[in-house]
Structures are given as C-alpha cells and as structure tokens.
Design a protein around this nucleic acid. Structure first.
Lengths: 334, 334
DNA sequence: CACTATACCCAAAACGTTTTGGTTTGGCAA
DNA sequence: TTGCCAAACCAAAACGTTTTGGGTATAGTG
C-alpha cells in the first residue's frame, strides 16, 4: 500500500540504512548513490513516515493547542483567532505540529487533559481561553508537561504564561481619561473568573488613586466581555450616577454596547460620556464614533507563547511570566 | 522514562499480549487478571502510546485542518472561527485528532500539501479559506487524499465540499429588497477569486431578471469582503448612480462599511438607501441601524464538513457537494 | 609488502504497540 | 485411562524508521 524506506532501498539496490542516512544528510553516502536514492524515492513517491520516526526518536515534534470551551465562547474569535495564528505561524516555522485539544467531552466520556496529551506524546501545550475556575486549571498547573497559558497567570516548574500587562494597560487608559479632565469615571469590568479582569481592576484603581480620586465601589460593574453585557452595565451605571462623564470598559465589545446604550439615551459620545475600550478589535475603527481603546498585540502574544514553549523544549529554559506592553490608541470616542 | 506496556506486564506478572488485550476489551482475559492489570497500570500512570498504536494499526485517526493564509486574512475570524469550532467538535466527538495545516512556509522552505499530509499519515483534510487561484488548489483537487473544502466547490473522486447555497441566498436577499419596492439595487460583491462570489453574483442576477429588472454591469462592484472595501465601493456606486435606493453586499463587513459611508454622505439607512449584508456576523446586531442580512450557519458548515469526511473515511461514502440553506434575517437596515 | 586511513556501506537492534497462531491447564465425557 | 473442549494465557512477528557498531574495499604510507 504505502511505500516505505524498504521499497526505496530495494529499488535503489542499497540497504535501508543508506537510504535513511541519505535522507538525513549524513556524509558517509556517496554523491552518486545519494542521487540514485533520491531519484528512486521521487519516482516511487516515497514520503518518510513521521509516526515511525516519532516512535524511534521518542519525540513527536508536536504540541497541543488547547482552546477552552471552543463552541460556547461567543465573541471569543475577536481575540483568539489572531493568537492562534501567531502560535501556529511560529510553531510551523520551527517545524512543530499543532494538535487541537479541547476541554470538552471527547467520545462522550470526559478524558483528562493529561491523559490526552501523554497518549499523543505531545511535547507541550499552549492553553487559551480558560477561566480561573475551570476544573482543568488545576490539572494544567500540576501536570509535568511543559505548558504556557495565554491570559492565564499560572507559574510552576513546567508552566509559564504570556499576557498583556493589563495593570498598566488599564492604568494608562484611565490616566488618559483623567488627563482629559474626567473625574467621575465608571469601569465596566469582565467577569471575575478571568485573570485579566483582576489586573484591569487593579490598573483602574491605581490610576484613580494616583490622581487622588476616590474609588467608588458602585462605579465598578462586573459584566461578561460581550456587547449586551456592556449595554446593560452602562444603563445601570448611567441611571445611578448621572454625574459620570467617562466609562472605561474591559473589552471593546462591551464598549461598543456601551456607546450604543449612551446614544440611545440621547447622549453624545464623547461629548457627554467619553468611552474607552480594551483589546483594539478590528471593529473599533468602524463604529461611530470610532472607538478609543487599549490595544493588545494578539498575534504577538501567540508568537511569544510559542517562543516560550520552544525555549523550554529546545533549550530547557525556565518558564516565566511574560508581559507584553499595551498601547493606547485614541480615536474619537474619548 | 515513559512507562510502557512492558512495564505494566512485568509488574502485573503477565505477558504484554494480555495487557494489550485487557486494555482493548477482549474476552479471553479473566476478570481477576484484568483487574490486576488495570490496577497496576493506574499505579504506574501508564498511558498507551498513540504513535506506536498508529504505526502497527496503520491509521492515525487524525485529519488535517488546512486554513489558507492564516495570518493574512483580516476579518477571516468572523467566518472561520465558528467553522473551526464545528469541525473540531464533530471530529473530537468521533475520536479523531486535528492537526493544523497551513499553506504558508514551514521551516522556511515551501513544503507541498500532499507531502505534509502523507508524512504525517493524515487520513483526510478539511480545507478552508482558500481562493480559487491559490496554487495549492490544484494539488488539493488532484491528491488521492480524502478532503472536503469549505466554500471551495471542487468535486472529485476524493474531494467533496460544503457551502451555503449562495445562489439562493443572494436571490432571496435581492428578492426581498425588490419586494420592498426597490428597483435600482446595487451589488457589492467579494473578489472574483472566491467561489462564493460567483454564486452570489448569479443569485443577484437571477433575482433581478425574475423581477424583470435590468442587470446593469456598473451597478456591480467587486471588492474585498472587508469594511473599507465596502466603504469605497459604496461611495463609487452612490456617486455614479444617484438613483440607487438599495445595496446588497456579499459580506456583513462590507455592508457595515457601506452604511458608514452612506451615513457620512448625509443619507439615511434604510430611509434613503436600504442595506442588506451577507453572513450574519455577531456585530450586525450592534451597528446602528441593525443590519439585515443573509445568514450562514457557520458552525453547522464545520459539522457538515466533518461529517462528510468521516463518511468517506468510515463508510467509504462518495464525496458530494453539500449545500446548506441560508436564511434571511431582517433587522433595521432594509 | 604490510599497515593504516578513508570512504562507503550494511545487519541488527530498538522504539511501543497489536495480532496471529499457538500452548497450557483443568474439567468432563466416553 | 484417553480424548476433547473451553478458558486463559503467551511468544513472536509486524509496523517504518534511526542508530550503533561494525565491515569491506581502495588508496596512501613507511
């Protein structure tokens, strides 16, 4: 059926050792036989089997890409897609394969994360989209398998992470709003089970305190990162606190929902209420007014995560926590 | 290092044959020894190696997911992410693994699609995001490897496809505009190298002709599926044809760009110009006015593609062309 | 001529499974 | 006793590679 190294060897009149060595660029095979072998291989359409290779080499050159709750992650694509692209490009460039892993049921029975990975002999894993209260969290953190989390600050012997410097991102954002003269600044945060929410909250608090402004608990609302959540949170904020002149959102999606709500209430953005988002998704440029936001480098996060994992795998580097700098992009909404 | 079936066998005092058979649910191993084996395996943390298994079984239980131009596909996430989720969920459910494949350079040298897949012994491939003029197209079509394209109508002995019924989608959409009294209806299509563009154009033409309306060539513009493309195309259309009262777009992104343009020109949607998009991306609900659109079932497309591929693999079914029904969702923009 | 160095090549073992074609054991009927 | 059967187990081959530890010429050197 499939053509093997043995077929090539027979056809070329050499041993399989020689074929193998010819293919792997060893020096102890003459130019002549090498040419012959390559030519025979070509004519037979021979492709070396990675699985046989993996078996004997005891390494698969492949890592898992774990995306939590793939199917029930509305709006997740705005963030995750670019990260995946970054991870993919970097790993593919280094010759590593990517296998998709999910936390959801496979074959109807729940298979443990670590079982899945060791059965496939994955050499490492990149984890994304996971909540802090996800039951798999523990497993990932404790596994003796090199892994790096994206927006998931777990650090251990085998486990590093990459995320945007959310404390500073939020801090810079709020600081900008303050610099524009705002004093009553609301904050619509994401849900508390996202690591980023914790940091962004701290950034907000820090910026307010640094400016000598009081941090009022009921200026802060936890929502869901999505447009509708931003809308309802905004309504609540504005009804209870008419003095508010600016709102900072922990995601662009919520900010877009917020702008919509504000405009529906007959107020102007940024005239009456300034709006600042977080993420810099493509659509921020296309809403009216154009959304100001704290930008995350999503593709670069993927690349950084891949690099960290490769560092562990290839050069036994220690995992760490890598923070990528955010940047402020001011458009029209603030 | 890693614990193998041999370790389990030794520790349990049986042969590796018996361990294997115990694990695979054969009947000729007594309850007692089976219990013993399972217990030993548990205590040793034994996990059978899929790679050894693949080698002897001559099947990997894994398929490729090929995403064309992963990194240079702005806006692609709106469509591709959900499809990927569908493909993933279905295949994971059936116990198949997914390996990411891209058309881009791996290890700096261009590796052929078919080489990539056979080296890894992938059993099939699902291809998405590919243009008709992609150099890989030919290769996919001619490969003796079961594959199904998404929005890529190539049909051969080994190659099927899944797409939305774009002819009817466009036809229904335009028909709706006509039913609302519009007679001068522009069409902003995607680029001609996308299979869907061909079909949507035909749908537009059909609907116009069925209503006895003339199809004017310069009412039709080919653009790029993206917001900015929609914006410029709209400006062009409206400047040259002030009589136009409705525009149909081949993507929601372009429709959103179009609405922005129309509003910038001081006209009202849908009062002056009615707008109808295509895709039903999440943001259509959150622009003002809310976007009317032809909805595609993205997740279901992924599931259908996975199902077709599995049908070929598991039950030797013939590949075919599966068309999923679109549906009209009318909101405020038309 | 004997010895050594070099260039080229190869047999066999190993990787961790599955499966084939057995063997062994004990029980039971004739 | 013998023969037969079923239940429980196993040795060995196979899957397609890589690598180790050689071997055999040929050419060069003293």
């Amino acid at each position: 059926m499939t053509v093997t190294i043995r077929d090539v060897a027979r056809q070329a009149g050499v041993s399989i050792t020689t074929v193998s060595r010819a293919f792997n660029g060893y020096q102890d095979v003459s130019e002549e036989t090498k040419k012959k072998i390559l030519q025979v291989a070509e004519s037979l359409n021979y492709r070396p089997s990675r699985v046989a290779r993996s078996l004997v080499l005891q390494q698969t050159q492949s890592v898992g890409l774990m995306i939590s709750d793939f199917n029930v992650n509305p709006g997740g694509h705005h963030f995750l897609f670019d990260v995946i692209a970054g991870v993919h490009d970097r790993l593919a460039y280094l010759g590593y394969d990517i296998t998709l892993v999910s936390t959801t049921t496979a074959r109807q029975r729940l298979i443990s994360y670590i079982d899945f990975c060791t059965e496939r002999r994955l050499e490492g894993v990149i984890v994304m989209g996971m909540r802090l209260d996800d039951p798999y969290m523990q497993e990932v953190a404790e596994a003796k398998l090199p892994s790096v989390g994206i927006d998931l600050p777990i650090l251990s012997r085998y486990c590093g992470y990459v995320m945007t410097d959310n404390v500073n991102g939020a801090r810079q954002g709020v600081r900008y709003l303050i610099s524009q003269g705002h004093r009553s600044i609301g904050f619509v945060n994401g849900h508390a089970q996202a690591a980023v929410s914790v940091d962004r909250l701290r950034g907000y608090q820090t910026a307010m305190q640094e400016a000598g402004l009081e941090v009022k608990e009921d200026w802060i609302i936890h929502s869901n990162f999505l447009v509708d959540g931003g809308e309802t949170a905004t309504r609540q904020l504005l009804q209870n606190h008419p003095e508010m002149t600016a709102i900072f959102y922990a995601s662009d999606l919520m900010a877009i929902g917020g702008m919509r709500c504000i405009q529906r209430m007959g107020k102007k953005v940024p005239g009456d209420i300034a709006v600042l988002g977080y993420d810099n998704i493509d659509l921020g440029e296309w809403v009216t007014p154009m959304l100001s936001t704290v930008a995350q480098k999503r593709y670069e996060m993927g690349v950084a995560a891949a690099d960290m994992l490769m560092g562990m795998l290839l050069r036994q580097e220690e995992p760490g926590g890598r923070l990528l700098p955010p940047s402020l992009v001011i458009r029209e909404s603030s």
